[in-house]
Amino acid sequence: MEAIGDIKSGYIRELLSKGLREDSRKVSDFRSIKVAKNVIENAEGSAQVDLGNTRVLAGVKVILGEPMSDTPNEGTLAMSAELLPLASAEYEAGPPSPNAIELARVVDRGIRAGKCVDMTSLFIEEGKSWNVYVDIYVLNYDGNLFDASCLAAMSALACTKMPEYENGAEVREKRVKELKIDNIVTSATFAKINGGILLDPNGNEENAAAARLTVATDGKFIRAMQKGLSGSFSAKEVEEMADMAMKKHDELKRRVMGA
């Protein structure tokens, strides 16, 4: 219901003018984070992430296929996201919305630019490779899908077990070997509301935001960024957010690596 959103936005702005947030967090705090791995046994890898009330499930399927013609010695990686109608009254069934496509592409860029998956390890033999599909399923929406999805996709990849290749066919009975992961990328998303900047906006805060920035990093380099909404940031603000994202990386990386 959009009308309610506007009223709540007014309240969020009023609170923020006093330096307060709806759930009494500091501006640089994430909500509570829970990561559950291997929740879908049929998938080669999977992870469900709860970021406050936002819930995202990522599943990885590894399928025998062909390399792309421009990278004949590598496998492939494809990322999609779906904003399921059961996640919010605002989401509708149908083809992927621009928001869902943006979400998948931003998560994809961070993980790809960070060279997280060793693509050459997916090469099998000439004309044969493993193709990795990551599907992000949004189950409940309460803001900041970017960070929840990045965490879910990265965690699912980090626990992915590969099928075997035997006599020209894929065998899934024994999935033991791990997908080779070379790097861990996490993201931090910020919202600008009434000139103030806060980390990990919840649904109401996202509604009230004028501008949004997602920074994906491996702790050493900034790996991907995406600015959203019609508002703007100063160069200094962007630098500060990038700095904060790097600082938050270790905490998030531990979640990815955790059992």
């Binding site: 879908i40 049929n42 998938a43 999977s46 499930l57 599943g59 990885v60 399927k61 399928i63 999609s80 779906e82 083809p95 992927p96 599909y133 599907d135 399923y137 899934r172």
Partner: peptide
């Protein structure tokens, strides 16, 4: 059905 729901295939969404 989720694209990752079956053991053998990667399903298409929709």
């Amino acid at each position: 059905m989720a694209p990752f729901s079956s053991l053998e295939d990667h399903g298409r969404t929709g």
